[in-house]
């Protein structure tokens, strides 16, 4: 049913550290790999080696430049996937019941057998977390690797989402954000984790940790003054000789 369940006690989700992320896109590839080979329709590519390649991805990494008023700009890499919102607008708009939020752990999923591919849930999502697969004609989204995290056939350390497992920088954390004492909840509390686009009222479960303040160079640090503007000696002769050749001065 596309009615939202009452808020669950367990709220599984991700905490993404924007201070630590180096923008390597390993999470993007790990996500695409796991979710193409496992749960549901594969994540297809269209014209992958042609002039205009495109494809379905459940996780994408943006890069933003932030310029504080008086300091040089800094670059922040920004992975974005489904935030498994508590008040998920993508779920209630679904006409068929394909889109649903699990009552037991809050994961938002799509039953691909019931999806008519109308695309309305992607319209309702402010974060661009849902993409219609052009080959399968059904809506794809992050499953929080529901087929890994409860999978007894995997070694214990692999029972977390593929993006978290692969992140070489340790910028992605998985856990229960409904439990105030969990490692992820403590991380959010310590580092001032925040919601994306809170004014949309979606109450995302996933949280983002802000970049830590950077060391700033002293503002009066001028560039080094040039010590030699005219070349002397052999190099000076070479410079003058070359300047006389036709085609110089371009």
């Amino acid at each position: 049913m596309t009615s939202l369940p009452p808020p669950s006690a367990v709220k599984l989700g991700l905490v993404i550290d924007l201070d630590t992320c180096v923008g390597c896109h390993a999470c993007v590839i790990a996500c695409k790999g796991w979710n193409t080979e496992n749960y549901g329709a594969p994540l297809s590519d269209q014209n992958p080696y042609g002039a205009d390649p495109s494809g379905t991805f459940l996780n994408r990494v943006h890069s933003y430049e932030i310029t504080p008023g008086d300091s040089p700009p800094q670059l922040v890499h920004f992975p974005k996937s489904c935030l498994h919102c508590e008040d998920a607008p993508c779920v209630t708009v679904c006409p068929t019941g394909a889109s649903y939020k699990r009552a037991e752990d809050g994961i938002v999923l799509v039953n691909e057998d019931a999806c008519i591919g109308c695309g309305l849930c992607a319209w309702a999502c402010p974060y661009g977390a849902r993409e219609m697969d052009a080959a399968a004609g059904v809506m794809k989204k992050c499953t929080l690797c529901v087929d890994r995290i409860y999978n007894d056939n995997l070694p214990e350390e692999d029972r977390e989402p593929a993006c978290v497992r692969t992140c070489p920088a340790g910028a992605r954390h998985f856990g229960d954000l409904g439990d105030a004492d969990s490692a992820v909840s403590r991380l959010v509390a310590e580092r001032g984790g925040f919601d994306l686009m809170p004014e949309q009222g979606t109450k995302p479960v996933n949280k983002y940790l802000p970049p830590r303040p950077k060391d700033r160079p002293a503002p009066d640090l001028a560039p080094l003054a040039p010590v030699a503007t005219e070349a002397k000696g052999f190099l000076g002769w070479l410079d003058r000789a070359l300047s006389t050749l036709p085609g110089e001065g371009r």
Binding site: S54, R60, H62, Y64, I66, P68, L75, F194
Partner: peptide, 18 residues
């Protein structure tokens, strides 16, 4: 508000994901 990074300074899209 989309990135939550407005508190640090002016935010500009530097590179799209693809």
């Amino acid at each position: 508000t989309a990135t939550g990074l407005g508190g640090i300074g002016a935010v500009r899209s530097f590179a799209p994901p693809h």
